[in-house]
């Protein structure tokens, strides 16, 4: 079956050069930020792929690439087998994809009533004619996300963060999409509200057969929602594996470091050795494998040659040490 979404070596570079005059004065060339630099994955219909990584790893850029907010610098994005640009040009195809954002305070237009916010995709795609019928649908959607149809008459500022995220979800569902891109949908929420939203998203997926691309920095959250997980570091995937495999046998040294770094709620008292150093700038990434300056297993080859994604068990890993069998746990 055709995957819902497929990316083939997709990259997105940003020109972050300073203005021409300053560049001439400082005698420096153009500077390119390689936010995403060659990422390939596929999401089968009805499943959830999560991308995890630290800030600046390019996961949010991937989210914006696959809904067409940025055109790719290189590579291809296929939506249900069709090139994304072509799919975006077709109103019917476009209505099949929607996005949920991180900040519940910025993702709703503060000057619009909630009912109009939710009805906007319905109107834009011409799905339902007539205000009465549209409002009826809005009421249904509000009920579906656990709010009251009467809430439609209010403005966003009258709601809490969790309720706003529900409104965001209702807006995304209003065009009957099949594919939802969720960019850190719970990271701005309190933990008890996060549980509500994650449960709601799982329910909706089961009921409506949705496909999710889920972006998060929180591994514990990702474990609860994903079928497959991709770990990103400096614009590239370093490991892509079925969710359970990733947690039981993490292979890439960065994946391991990331799991090691999470504070231990179980208080087993295990001594953690936090990974040293910091994420380098994506404007001047290290040579070879971008993780080598922080990697305990790095050798000369890692400094010189960028690793490719190779199969390792059920996973795919981009690491020379794993390939050579140096990474035995």
């Amino acid at each position: 079956m055709t995957p819902m979404l497929e990316t083939q070596d997709v990259a997105r570079h940003f020109d972050v050069s300073r203005p021409l005059i300053q560049r001439l004065l400082a005698r420096e060339g153009r500077r390119t930020l390689r936010a995403v630099d060659g990422v390939s994955f596929a999401i089968p219909k009805g499943s959830t792929l999560s991308l995890v990584g630290e800030s600046g790893c390019g996961k949010s850029t991937v989210a914006r690439l696959v809904v067409g907010l940025y055109p790719p610098t290189r590579g291809r994005v296929l939506f249900d087998g069709q090139d994304l640009a072509a799919a975006r040009a077709d109103r019917r195809q476009r209505s099949r994809m929607q996005m949920i954002f991180q900040d519940p305070y910025a993702s709703l237009n503060p000057r619009w009533r909630v009912a109009d916010i939710i009805a906007e995709p319905i109107r834009a795609f011409g799905l339902i004619e007539g205000r009465a019928a549209q409002m009826e649908r809005v009421g249904e959607l509000l009920t579906q996300v656990g709010l009251s149809p009467l809430d439609g008459q209010k403005y966003p500022h009258e709601f809490s963060g969790g309720q706003r995220q529900r409104i965001s979800i209702a807006r995304a569902l209003s065009s009957n999409p099949e594919f939802l891109v969720c960019d850190e949908p719970t990271s701005a929420l309190d933990v008890s509200v996060q549980a509500q939203i994650l449960n709601l998203m799982k329910e909706l997926q089961a009921r409506l057969g949705l496909t999710y691309l889920f972006i998060s920095h929180n591994l514990a959250v990702v474990r609860q929602v994903s079928d497959r997980i991709g770990v990103m570091y400096l614009g590239r995937l370093v490991e892509l594996a079925p969710a359970e495999t990733l947690f039981t046998t993490p292979r890439h040294p960065y994946t391991r470091a990331l799991m090691e770094a999470i504070p231990d709620l179980e208080m087993t008292g295990r001594a953690r050795t936090p990974v040293g150093g910091e994420v380098p700038s994506p404007i001047s990434p290290p040579s070879g494998c971008a993780f080598h300056p922080r990697c305990p297993l790095a050798n000369a080859r890692c400094k010189a040659e960028a690793p490719r994604m190779l199969p390792a068990g059920e996973a795919q890993v981009a690491c020379h040490a794993v390939e050579e069998g140096r990474a035995a746990a």
């Binding site: 991180q102 900040d103 910025a106 993702s107 965001s168």
Partner: peptide, 13 residues
Amino acid sequence: NKEYVQAARVIGL
């Protein structure tokens, strides 16, 4: 750059 504008762009307005 706020997300509500991005949401409108995703719809294709």
